[in-house]
């Protein structure tokens, strides 16, 4: 039994993932064990340590705001599972 009680359906909902009840039970138990293990981080005094987002010190990379060659409409739509009228097609979102 894990020390961590996780609301797995909430995480799944945020992640836009449909889970079967079996999947939900499995992931809840597995993630609980993984999070138990992560308590190892509590051994260290991390409060005053600066966080690292990237290992290499590269910041605020800029480029000129100018047009450059890109996909044609047909190329951009070539991998779309559904398209019509030169646009991506999605299920209806307004009544």
């Amino acid at each position: 039994m894990s020390a961590h009680a996780i609301d797995i359906q909430k995480a799944a909902s945020l992640a836009r993932l449909k889970l079967t009840p079996d999947e939900a039970a499995l992931y809840e138990s597995q993630l609980g064990k993984i999070l138990d293990y992560m308590d190892v981080l509590a051994r260290y005094d991390l409060g005053s340590v600066e966080p690292t987002a990237h290992a290499m010190p590269v910041h605020n990379v800029m480029r000129r705001d100018e047009s450059r060659p890109s996909f044609t409409q047909d190329q951009a739509l070539a991998n779309a599972p559904k398209s019509s009228h030169h646009q991506f097609q999605i299920p209806k979102v307004v009544e």
Binding site: A15, R16, L17, K18, L19, A76, N79, A80, P81, K82, F88, I90, P91, K92, V93
Partner: peptide, 22 residues
């Protein structure tokens, strides 16, 4: 939407996301 698997029978846009990804 743009590439990759798309579920065959979504009832609405949310169900489309949830099911396509699942």
């Amino acid at each position: 939407v743009r590439y990759g698997h798309r579920t065959a029978n979504a009832t609405d846009i949310l169900d489309h996301y949830f099911s396509s990804r699942a």
